[in-house]
Design a protein around this nucleic acid. Structure first.
Lengths: 169, 169
DNA sequence: CCTTAACTTCACAAGTTTGTGAAAGTACCG
DNA sequence: CGGTACTTTCACAAACTTGTGAAGTTAAGG
């Protein structure tokens, strides 16, 4: 650890090791199903001090075209993982990650869960609720319903725990 | 609902509506990041009455080659979402889904979570724990650590709840 | 209003993924 | 041990994805 050999306490931002982190983190997001470019953009935002970068900054840091940044940001905004803000007095836009908002977005996937449940319900219907397969699906459905409730409660607990650790928003 | 127009209670397995379910469910697994073929194979297994199918049965139902089935099953077995069993007295293999085992496999992703945490810890190190970015990562890390503990506890509660709903294993 | 900085859209080329047929490998069974 | 019934591996073609440059659009500022 502390491979940069800097004295602890110093806030020297070594671009190379930052980039290394960005790429590792992005790789894990990709592994978890996110597309490559949104993952890289998101990781870059997450590890910026201001929490917000312009399109040009992102393009330079990641060595990609404005078009790529544009597409990635559109996706991230749709997923509520970043928000866009216009810099006043400039035609430049900045993309911001609200540190906690992003994992809230990932866990608050009510709509997604609801669709899974809907599909499963249809499955139980077409297989017949009393067939072995129907029962198997019904159990899966019950699990998802349970999950949905638990996730909400868990995020509530997290907010409390978070405040203990880091204080007010 | 009950689009098949069969009297309730009847266990008529309409191959077409089953296939429709298989494809919808598979599509959702794909959306969640699983590869296409493993998703289809898994959905087919999940909606089979026996909970187990041979390679030939899967190939026929899904209209794919034995090679495709082989690859898909290898992946699913690695993820512990199906298990393989040799039929005694035959050289045929069957692939089985243990109704509850599969979502246990999906939620028991300790190793995966651990790797995220490791990456985040490195990130905090290279950004500096007292920088804004470092603090942001530290919060994300704390969230993952919290998640890890919560997930385990949640699955414990689910097992109890499940037993209430469906009885013993 | 015109200029211009910045973002977005689009057609396409490069790269990657996916499923196939054919050949090779395994292991039951006589 | 040889035959055969499966399964797996492999090289490749088709289909899809991804990022680019260039043209198009928007709106800030003169």
């Amino acid at each position: 650890m502390n491979a940069g050999m800097t004295e602890p306490g110093e806030a020297v931002r070594d671009p190379e090791s930052v980039s290394k982190f960005v790429e590792s983190f992005a790789a894990q997001l990709v592994e978890a199903g996110m597309q490559r470019m949104p993952a890289r953009v998101f990781a870059a935002l997450l590890s910026s001090d201001s929490g917000a970068l312009t399109s040009a900054e992102l393009g330079e840091q990641l060595q990609v075209s404005p078009a790529a940044v544009s597409g990635a940001v559109r996706y991230l905004a749709q997923q509520h993982m970043v928000s866009r803000e216009r810099e006043p007095g400039s035609r430049r836009e900045r993309y911001r990650v609200h540190s906690n908002q992003w994992y809230e977005a990932v866990t608050n996937r009510d709509a997604v869960l609801r669709r899974w449940e809907h599909t499963l319900r249809e499955g139980v219907d077409s297989l017949g609720a009393r067939t072995p397969a129907g029962r198997r699906l019904a159990e899966t459905l019950a699990f998802f319903e349970f999950l949905e409730a638990e996730l909400a409660a868990m995020m509530e607990r997290w907010r409390v725990h978070r405040e203990e650790l880091f204080g007010e928003l």
